[in-house]
Structures are given as C-alpha cells and as structure tokens.
Design a protein around this nucleic acid. Structure first.
Length: 147
RNA sequence: UGAGUUGGCCAGAUGAUCGCUGCCUGAUAUGAAAAUUAUCAGGGGGAGGAAAGUCCGGGCUCCACAGGGCAGGGUGCCAGCUAACGGCUGGGAGGCGUGAGCCUACGACAAGUGCAGCAGAGAGAAGACCGCCGAUGGCUGCUUUCGAGUAGAACAGGUAAGGCUGAAAGGGUGCGGUAAGAGCGCACCGGACCACUGGUAACAGUUGGUUGCAGGGUAAACUCCACCCGGAGCAAGACCAAAUAGGGUUCCUAAUGGCGUGGCCCACGUUGGAACCGGGUAGGUUGCUUGAGCCUUAGAGCGAUUUAAGGCCUAGACGAAUGAUUAUCCUUUUCUUAGGAAAAGAACAGAACCCGGCUUAUACGGCUGACUCACUAA
RNA sequence: GGAGAGAUGGCAGAGUGGUCGAAUGCACCGGUCUUGAAAACCGGCAUGGGUUUAUAGCCCAUCUAGGGUUCAAAUCCCUAUCUCUCCG
C-alpha cells in the first residue's frame, strides 16, 4: 500500500537546498508557473515553493496557490523519480480557478520527470536560450552572500 | 403599514475519503538508566471581524531601578473610566434635523511677534477719493445806526449717514439731536466686567449692579498656558552546540580618554582602547502563549467600567500547518405547464511576541433590541 | 514582522500659503539658416468640461485620491492608495 503523505522529507527545507537547484536546472513552464528540477541522491522526490509577494499581491491567494501545489504533488508523488522540484509563480496566477491550476500542475510533474531521466537527451532549452541562463545565474548569485 | 434613527449578534451547516501540524496516551528502535530522537497507532485541538493599515496606547526585553536640564514631539471645553491612550462614557457650548438623533483639533490673538497678493481713499487705536456740511475763522459782494447783519464761493476746516473696493471696513434698529454728522443723548436688542444663585467643573441665569461698548481675522503662523513623553524594538533579548582562533601587525596613551548613549549637556555605569589583516561559522533551543483572558450569576454605578463567587483552557507554524475532492440540507438565480433540472456558495480577506483602541475594506447579506415621524384602525 | 522616505506636464525635476497651470532641462511641433541635414537662433507645447456652427478667446476643474483649516492650499492638518529604501 502506497502512502500519500507529505512529510518533511518530501520538502526542501533550507536555503542551501534551493540554491543547489537554481544552479543549472531542468526547466518547464506554463502560463502560470515556472518549474525548475534536478535529480537528487535520495529515494524520493522533493518539492519547494517560491511565491513572491511581487507576483501575487494578497496573502490569501499566495496560500491558496501553495496549498494546491502541495496537494497535487502529494497525489502524484509515486509517479516521480528522485528529483527535486522548485515551483515559481508568474504574474496573473491568482486569476485562475482551482480546477485549472490543478490540471496544469498534474501535467507538469510528469513532463519534468521525463526530462530528468538520466537516459533522456539533454534538453533543448539550454542551447536555445543561453541568455536566459545567464540572467538566471546573476540573479541567484546576488542574494547568496547576504544569507 | 410606510419612512427613518441607533445599538448588539452571525460570517453557511452536517457527513465521507485522502492529507498537514503541534499537544496527550500507547507501542517499537537506539541506550546501563533517566532522558532525547526517529517511526507507527489512537484521541481530542487548529485563522479574523477586521488576522489588514501601522495611526495611537500599553505589557514584555535590552540599554542604568530611566535621574536633572535644554532641544524636540504630542494632546487641548469639563468631569469620570482605564494598565494606558489621540480611546470610551456622561455633561456643557455651538451647528444641522419636524423628530428619534447626528456633527464639532471647541485653551489663549486684551503677553509679545508675524501674515493678509490684487483691488481699494483706507487693512488695524484705519481712512477724506466721491459725497454731505461749512456752525467757527478767514475771503468776496450787498446793507449799515459802524456794534453788526445778510448772501455767495468752498480757502482753512468739520464729518464715518450714503457710495466705491474687498474674504474682511471698528455693535444693530428706531427716535431725538446737529451746520452736517457721530453712543453725542434716549429706548429696545446684543456685548463686556463685578457680585449673587445653581453646579465638583465646563457653564447657566425673565437675578442685581457698573459700563457707551470691547480696539476685526489668523495659533492645522511663531508663540504663551496646562498636562504628557528617555531610546530602541521579538530581526528585542537569552542559552546551547559546532567551525576557526585562543591570533598577527600598527598606533595612541595611562584615563579632564574610550564605550554604553540612538539630538546635546550634566550626572551615572563599566573598561586600557582603536584601526587593519588573517581564519571562518551563520545550525539549533528558548522568548512562544495562562492572559489588563473568556463564560455565567449576583452586587455598585445614569454609563464607560468595576467588585465577588463559580466554571473553562480556546492555534503556536518557522522555505512557514489550518487544506483538497465529494454527498446531502439550506439560500439565490435561470429554464419548465407542473413534477423537476442546471449553475453558484460567495464579500473583504490569512495569525508570526501579546493585548486595548482607532481607521480602512466588506456580500442579492441575515437575525434582533430600543426609539422617532407620517397615515389608517380600535 | 519592524523602521523610514516619497508621489508635480510625454520624461526628469524646482516650487517661502497670494500676480502659479506651475521655473528649468530633455523630448515633440513650426519657422529662420542649408543643396539637404545636424548644430545654433526664434516661437509654441498639460488634460478634461462648458460657452461657439467651428476656431481663437473666455470661464470652471485638476499638482496620487477623499475630507478639513484659511479670505485664499501643489504648499498646513487628517485618512486612504501606490511606489521605493533599510533592518538577519
């Protein structure tokens, strides 16, 4: 019997966990989310959430999005291999209703899992957008010394 | 019945499945034991009326048990409540409303200083531009009994009735009075001061007396008066563990110095101090929820509030829990002859140390107490 | 969570309560100059509403929004909204 719990071992807990994934991740995106992923050494997948105040203004909307993401991840965790995922939010996400967001998320988990498999070919986005990668790096290097 | 005024309460309900979190109980593992940690099972908890804005006030913590002075800031009719307040309650005054009621930063410009563009004659113990008068003094003419009389002009001058300007022009109306006028005099109205009476007081008065009458506005202008305020904030602060180091170099000197101290000075406390270089960690525990706490009953008070007795424990997360799906009821809307069917479950919005207020946001919102006005009936 | 600063024309940015719809610069528009352009010089230039057949002119409102004080508010006071900065 598989358990569908969502304990602490399924989450990213410290800043160091996050910064590891921000460094050269596998990417995927919809009109609401941006997901970053990377394989880890554990036997289970892990999830981290980043919902910036800049993107979603109201606290209750931020909470709603995070809850939906956790719920969706929890139910589909056994379809995933040992990868770490960080979910980021884009503008306008709070306008979508619950059913729509859940639908999008369920798709994305599986898509990311495919891309992270060791046999899979190196994903194309890297070659296509070297500029994005640079921007991403410089953004991430800045906050790290303050932490 | 309609129209309104004002206060209080609620923030969909119940169940199923899958989850999160911390508390209690039990089991297993590590261990000599206590204890701790990890996992599992069960039980019973788990967002708001504003949790928001951070506009005020406190508790709590550190700096000194928060002391004196200056600077700075706040409040501002009176009395009370309170831990405290810029809050609340009651009262006064003024304004609005037929009324129930509602609103008001409502101390002092007669302590002093400042400001008021343009316009206007004049803007502060005002002023003569037009106007009115020209009594009085002079001028000119006429008459003359040589004392003066009379007419005219408007030179000196008088005048704040009327006009003009402006946001604002130094009590109002009427009569008398005058050369014309004027609180110049009188009557009434209004005001000021003193006394008396009522009231704790603000203040009030068909009360009595004095006074022709304040020297206009502005203090959300400086200021004065009264009262209040030390500073910083849980990212406060305390502890444990780990890593590196128990350092090196230079300078100042012994201290009327440095630091604490965050506007300045005094005072106080503490101490050798400062700069640079090197190394390198930022993990956990605690603060953290029993509190100016909530409910009921009784007493005091017009009331805010308070006293006593009994009962209750009611979120404590930390990359951050409090959720998702679904069924029924209920409510609303739409469709249908009806039965019924479909859709939606709302608005504002999410604890982060905790309280008391204020302000702002709120649905087709719902329930309820008291009161006012209008109409009708008895 | 806490502390603080700000909001003025298309953009930047001055503005002691009074002749302020608001200096100045950039941008933009028109003109002079040039074969043409640049530079330079000269002039203009916020938005909405009303009046008018229409333009010009005139009047009213607007300095983030709503109230208040004052004869008079971009300026002073209160409330709200938005933006930015700092504190590990």
């Amino acid at each position: 019997m598989e358990s569908f719990g969502f304990g602490r071992e399924l989450r990213l807990l410290t800043p160091s966990h996050y910064s590891r994934i921000f460094n050269e991740p596998v990417r995927a995106a919809t009109n609401c989310f941006t997901l970053l992923a990377k394989a880890n050494d554990l036997s289970n997948p892990r999830l981290g959430l980043t919902v910036a105040k800049k993107r979603v203004k109201k606290a209750c909307d931020r909470n709603r999005i995070k809850r939906l993401a956790r719920e969706s991840f929890r139910l589909s965790q056994h379809k995933l291999d040992n990868i770490d995922i960080v979910l980021m939010v884009k503008n306008g996400c709070e306008l979508q209703d619950n059913a729509e967001l859940t639908k999008q998320l369920n798709k994305m988990w599986l898509k990311l899992n495919e891309r992270c498999k060791p046999g899979a070919p190196k994903p194309a986005p890297f070659k296509k957008r070297p500029r994005n990668q640079k921007n991403n790096k410089s953004k991430l290097n800045k906050p790290s010394p303050t932490r």
